[in-house]
Simulated assay, not measured.
Amino acid sequence: MSAERAMQLLRAWPGLTWTEASCGTGCAVCSQGCEIVHFHSASDADLHLTGRMIRRLGDQLRRSTAIRLLPESQWVTVHLDNDADADTLLSLVSAALQAHTACAGAAPGCNWNRVTFPDRRDDPVS
C-alpha cells in the first residue's frame, strides 16, 4: 500500500519518467535517463542513492529500520510498511536526484533479492 502511495506522489514530480526496471522486476522511476528508483513490490523499493550520498547520510540510514544497505552497493533498499516509510523514500528520492548530477548510463545492479527485512508490525519503534 505504501509503495502505491509513493508512486502516486512521484508521478506528480516534474522531470521523472517511468519504465520497466533494468533488473527485470517491477517499474523504474528515471531522471534524465538514469534509473533512480525501482519499485519491486507493494512493500519494497530500491533507490540509487549513489556511494557519495550513502556515505554522507550513512549514520541516519543505518538507524532506520526501514532501510537496508549492502556493502559496495550504490543502492539502498527501503521497506514500505507504512506512510512514514513512503515519506522517507520520497525524501531520499530528493537526495538521490541531487546526487545524480550526470548519469553515466545504467547504474550497477540494484539490491533486488539481496536484502531481507524482519516483520516490523509488532515493533513499537517503527
Score class of each variant (00 low, 15 high):
L9M: 14
L9I: 14
L10H: 06
R11Q: 13
R11G: 07
R11M: 14
P14T: 05
P14K: 12
L16P: 02
T17Q: 10
W18G: 09
T19P: 10
T19R: 15
T19D: 15
C23G: 08
C23N: 08
C23A: 09
G24D: 07
G24W: 00
G26P: 01
C27V: 15
C27P: 07
V29E: 03
C30Q: 11
S31L: 13
G33D: 03
E35S: 11
E35D: 14
E35K: 02
H38I: 12
F39I: 11
H40A: 11
A42T: 15
S43E: 14
D44L: 14
A45K: 05
A45I: 02
A45D: 04
A45F: 06
D46Q: 08
L47E: 02
G51H: 08
G51Y: 05
R52A: 14
R52Y: 02
M53W: 03
M53Y: 02
R55W: 01
R55I: 04
G58S: 09
D59K: 07
D59I: 06
R62V: 02
T65Y: 01
T65W: 01
T65S: 10
I67Q: 01
I67E: 02
L70Q: 11
P71H: 11
Q74H: 12
V76F: 02
V76I: 10
T77C: 07
V78F: 01
H79P: 03
D81Y: 04
D81E: 14
N82T: 02
D83A: 09
A84T: 09
A86T: 06
D87W: 01
T88F: 00
L89R: 04
S91P: 06
L92G: 03
L92T: 04
V93S: 08
V93W: 00
S94N: 14
A95N: 15
A96P: 03
Q98C: 07
H100Q: 09
T101W: 07
T101C: 08
A102C: 10
A102R: 12
A102H: 15
C103W: 00
C103Q: 03
G105V: 05
A107N: 05
G109Q: 10
G109N: 10
C110Q: 04
W112H: 15
N113M: 10
N113P: 08
R114A: 13
R114C: 14
R114T: 05
V115F: 00
F117P: 03
F117H: 10
D119C: 11
D119K: 06
D119V: 04
D119A: 09
D119P: 00
R120A: 04
R120F: 01
